Computed example of a mutant assay.
Amino acid sequence: MRVGLLFGGWSYEAFLSATPAIEKSLIRNGHDVVLIDCANNMLPSILKESKIEVAFLSSHGYYHEDGRLQGICDWIDLPYTGANHFSSAICMNKELFKHAISGFNEHNTPYANIKSLEDLKKDNVNHVFTLGKAIIKPITSGASIGIKIIEHKNQLEEDLVKLLGDYGECIIEPFIEINREFSIVVHDLLGEIEVMDICEILTNGDFFDFEMKNGYQDIKKTIPAELDEQLEEKLKIISKSVYEKLGVDGVARIDILVDSTNRINILEANTLPGLMPQSVVPSVFSNQGIEYDKLIEMILMRSFSPKRFTSKKQYGNQPKLSIDVLM
């Protein structure tokens, strides 16, 4: 099969890619691989002219995980890996995601959306700091890029100037003291939604920052996590609900914090999770007997099944309107 492996792009996360590992795996699986850099305004034409049969998305961040790249593929009828454009957009935007999962979350803490320094005067910014130190994040970045812990409000303006300049809109919320951090892999690669063994990220109490998350520091993972039966079941039910209710397709990674009272705080649903061999998703599948090449093939084949929250194009089937309506 002729597979387009899409990488790169304009996001700060563009270099965080498993492209080399995925390319080798696709070749081992017998596919003809075409590497396509997404950082090109002519991408729709390039995809059409490449004569690929399917797009394997291995680019990350803004423009790539937020529904735009998925929308391009939908527009030209090109099958692609991962979630549909609608779910991708919601899961990538931290404020939209907060609204979407509020019914599942047990830590619905106050937050503020900040687009400019003027927003620092808002009451909800002050409310965030009544609960202690805060955390500020770009609203549409992943991989812990741009995240800052703010100890005191008087530190906020200095950090915010840089963040707004680099990333644009941000969100600020109370910093929840981490007790335990979990990644739960959910997928529908075999036709039914399945929740895999839970992975616990062991950070020795440190914040799971950019360096840790992206392989610049060694982190330990426990798969399956050592959990009491009640908490394990609760985490799996919530993760499946988030996946299902937001209409996610393919493989997703739901990241969750659990505090010392076992209250759950859902951090994100990553619709294009990292696929480096040592990443959480391949590690979880490997632990359950599915090795890397098989996983890559399963993700690829899922592309040809219908995605959720999408409909067929209505080629020429528009209702006929009377002349009076048209005029």
Results as ranks from 00 to 15, higher is better:
Glu244Gln: 15
Glu244Val: 05
Lys221Met: 10
Ser239Asn: 10
Thr261Val: 02
Thr261Phe: 06
Tyr216Trp: 06
Val251Asp: 13
Ser241Asp: 15
Ser239Ala: 15
Val242Gly: 06
Ile237Phe: 08
Lys221Ile: 15
Glu226Ser: 13
Lys240Pro: 04
Tyr243Glu: 02
Ile223Phe: 00
Glu229Pro: 03
Leu231Val: 15
Ala225Cys: 10
Glu211Leu: 12
Asp249Pro: 13
Leu231Met: 15
Lys221Cys: 01
Ile254Trp: 09
Glu211Met: 08
Leu257Asp: 05
Val251Thr: 06
Ile219Asn: 08
Val258Gly: 02
Lys221Val: 14
Lys221Asn: 08
Glu232Asn: 10
Val242His: 01
Thr261Met: 00
Glu211Trp: 07
Gln217Arg: 15
Ala225Trp: 03
Ser239Pro: 01
Glu226Leu: 09
Glu211Thr: 12
Tyr243Ser: 09
Tyr216Asn: 14
Glu226Pro: 03
Lys213Thr: 12
Tyr216Phe: 13
Ile256Lys: 02
Met212Ile: 11
Val242Lys: 01
Lys240Val: 00
Glu233His: 07
Pro224Asp: 08
Thr261Pro: 04
Ala252Gly: 10
Glu244Arg: 12
Ala225Leu: 04
Leu257Trp: 04
Ser241Pro: 00
Val242Arg: 03
Glu211Asn: 15
Ile254Tyr: 10
Thr222Val: 13
Ser260Met: 14
Asp218Val: 13
Thr222Arg: 11
Glu232Tyr: 04
Thr261Ser: 11
Lys213Ser: 09
Gly250Cys: 13
